[in-house]
Nucleic acid binder design. Structure first.
Lengths: 223, 223
DNA sequence: AGTCACAGTTTGTGATCACAGTTTTGACAG
DNA sequence: CTGTCAAAACTGTGATCACAAACTGTGACT
């Protein structure tokens, strides 16, 4: 009962719905352009429409969903080169900055966590398990970003991943689980271990850049 | 009547509420730390609580409002140096980029609009009209940013201004309408007229930097 | 066979109610 | 005048209903 009153605060239904939708979007389980509906989502999640409406508003504000101006109907934003390029530039700015700031707060526990994430990532890659790969990659990156103690930047990164998710699906839809450069992850971990902030920034920049470049190529190839 | 059917789409109540709250926040009419309530806002705006809830969710997602974890009560986020520094860095990254991209789409009409905005700004400054200054400054910047055809960046800038608004109030609360460097604006306009994109980027960076630096000093002075 | 109209369904939007916490109020006792 | 404690008011949250606009599909008519 000591700290239970503090940690007792069970998340609201709205938060649960939001997390559920956010996870689906980040892992690319929603196809770009796919239309969704409040009542359908509410029914699937076993709640009323009310909390779904609020979660969806939140996602729209983060540009992870959109309301088509004509219909006023809800859907996952579709892909465009312009959009992807903005995502790429924004991610290349904010994520290296977050990683840089994370160095000051790194601990052996986190290093171990990152190694575990990377191991899961490589295992998923070996099996061709796209979902597993996406999940492990997300965990790896945000276990780092959370250390930065920069909640605004963290939120920006989260929003950018929400928007990138559907693109990723499109990439892996074409080239099924290509050889992603997880070497950057190993170099990142090494840089964290010797607390070399500049190297961390550089390797994170390269990791993001390569990933987004891959998506850009896939998008162009798909015309 | 020709295009009225297109522009006829009157904005939803939710959008009106959102715009209303957003404007108040950007102009710093809400003090940092001030608590607000759904029903109060709804009553003031003459609508039911429903659209206010959605507008507030949207603003929370943009970090322009926050839900205190203890109370679950709504309020304007309070100031912190860490927070302001993140705002400063983010604005210094995205706003010069938007201005840079705007150069390609500049027209004489927009130039005239910018000159008008700047004139209003200087007039407000001369009269010590803080609200007028804030409004004109906002108009000046976003008349530029809107040209960039980069909706993700535009949205990021909008979110950052929403978060900066309450800080600005704190600044002007202390030093009432100091000599703001509107010279940057004139240099910006000149750079747009000769379509010198690099100069536009540089001057915008300086303008944002100086404004935020002023806020940082005021924050530190207020401890 | 192709096109159009009409009915039925599904959509987002806004209002209203019920409920459980929290805060504020106000009266009473010291 | 001050401290205490219960009642009243207020808070966010979730569910439900009403409504108009948009979509669906089926059938008839050219």
């Amino acid at each position: 009962m000591s700290l239970s009153t503090v940690s007792m605060e069970e998340p609201s239904v709205h938060d649960q719905v939001y997390e559920s939708l956010a996870e689906a979007l980040i892992q690319g389980r929603f196809a770009p352009g796919k239309s969704v509906s409040l009542r359908t989502l509410a029914h699937q999640l076993g709640v009323s429409a009310m909390p779904v409406r609020e979660a969806v508003r939140r996602l729209i504000a983060q540009k992870a969903l959109e309301l088509q101006p004509s219909n006023k109907r809800l859907r996952v934003p579709s892909l465009s080169e312009n959009r992807l390029q903005q995502l790429m530039l924004a991610r290349q700015w904010v994520e290296p900055e977050l990683a840089y700031r994370a160095v000051a707060h790194i601990t052996p526990d986190i290093i171990a966590q990152l190694k575990s994430d990377d191991a899961q990532l490589m295992a998923a890659l070996a099996e061709g398990d796209v979902d597993g790969y996406m999940q492990a990659n997300h965990a790896f990156h945000f276990h780092i970003y959370r250390l930065a103690e920069a909640d605004l930047f963290l939120d920006m990164a989260r929003s950018l991943w929400l928007q990138s998710g559907p693109f990723m699906r499109a990439v892996f839809g074409r080239l099924n689980a290509v050889q992603l450069p997880q070497d950057h992850h190993l170099e990142l971990i090494a840089a964290f271990e010797r607390e070399d902030a500049e190297a961390v920034r550089r390797h994170m920049s390269e990791d993001v850049h390569e990933g987004m470049e891959l998506m850009m190529e896939a998008l162009k190839a798909a015309e």
